[in-house]
Amino acid sequence: MIDNPILQEDLEFIANKILNNGYFSNSTILITGATGLLGSLIVKSCLYANKIFNTNITVLATIRNREKADQVFQGFTSNPKLKLITNNLLEPITINESIDFIVHTASITASKEMVENPTSVLLTAFESTKNLLEYLKKHSNTKMVYVSSMEYYGQISDNYENVTEEQLGYIDLSKPRSSYPESKRVCEALCNAYTAQYNLEVCSARLAQTFGAGVPLSDSRVFAQFAKSAVNKTDIILHTSGQSEGNYCYTADAIYGLFLLLQKGQQGQSYNIAHNHSSILNMAKMVAEKIGHNQIKVKVQIPENINSLGYAPDVKLKLNSDKLKNLGWQPEVDLENMFKRMIKSWEF
């Protein structure tokens, strides 16, 4: 079922950390955005736990493209515990199965689309979340985790080196790119409004940038570009000054955190999921040194059309994840090994 030993190690880690305690056994879990990185790994984690622990979890995976789903879930599509659903999340949810848990990962995350199609970014986030919350109104025993983002915080001027969940920074709403962080804010607000008014079991996960085994070689995000530069022994080219600070989390650690929130997350609460921190420039230098063995260099080449590329503004932000750790979360993979495990997984 798994032909990638790195990914298999991660699925075993998740199963042993959170899925073998009986809490999720014999349940039905709906995963939105199931062909994305997070969604697909949640699906595979459940099915892998079924195999090794007989947890008997039924997975309902919402997809938009069946051909992509067949590729992402190769080796899993014949599993009777996986049901691929093509429901349009922008319309009322019509699912006959009784659902115990929902993880709402579906979101438009392409930076270019945030600039060129900001209305879709906002409306897709809002309408899909609203429709899921309307489902929860009718099925009050269902618990949902909304997957938010560290971009929720915007630009924080005070105490940015220890950002806890109650802090909030500035977002420039005149910029189309702000459609993404603002969509996260409005969806969290919507979740909390429904929770307060209808007593729903919903919490939010503010996720750091997540990567590791499971990221396809075709990925074009900055961390993947750095990794491929190290593999190909080509210099790392930065299109910004690299001063923006990022928060990162290994894929398996993040999935483990999301399952923990399904089990222990408090209604109406938000939780940071972050383990590693670095500026873009320092991360590039680390990759060049540790992964590229000092055989490559880091160069800064800022394009003239930088404002049209959808890059987030420079942000200084270091997330504090103590709130999630107080629930028992214990992440294990540091930034260097995030890169090493992702690159190793590309060999299979």
Rank of each mutant, 00 (worst) to 15 (best):
N294K: 14
F223V: 14
I99Q: 05
T251G: 11
A274C: 04
C191N: 07
Y170N: 14
F223R: 11
R185G: 08
F24G: 00
L335E: 02
A224Y: 05
L41W: 10
F339W: 02
I93L: 02
A189H: 13
I343P: 02
T86L: 13
T129F: 02
I108T: 12
K17L: 03
Y256G: 05
T142W: 06
A61Q: 06
Q295T: 12
A288I: 02
Q330V: 11
A230I: 05
N320L: 01
S27T: 11
K44L: 07
V43C: 04
Q266F: 07
Y311Q: 06
F13D: 08
G36C: 08
C191W: 01
N320Q: 03
Q209W: 13
I171S: 02
S178Y: 04
L60S: 07
K83N: 15
S107C: 11
E97S: 15
W346S: 07
A254R: 05
E134G: 03
R177G: 09
A110M: 11
R206S: 06
N16L: 06
A106V: 03
I31V: 08
L324E: 01
Y250K: 05
I93N: 00
E165S: 08
S25E: 07
N294G: 09
P331Q: 09
C249S: 15
T86Y: 04
V298E: 01
I296F: 05
N326S: 14
E289F: 03
Q74L: 14
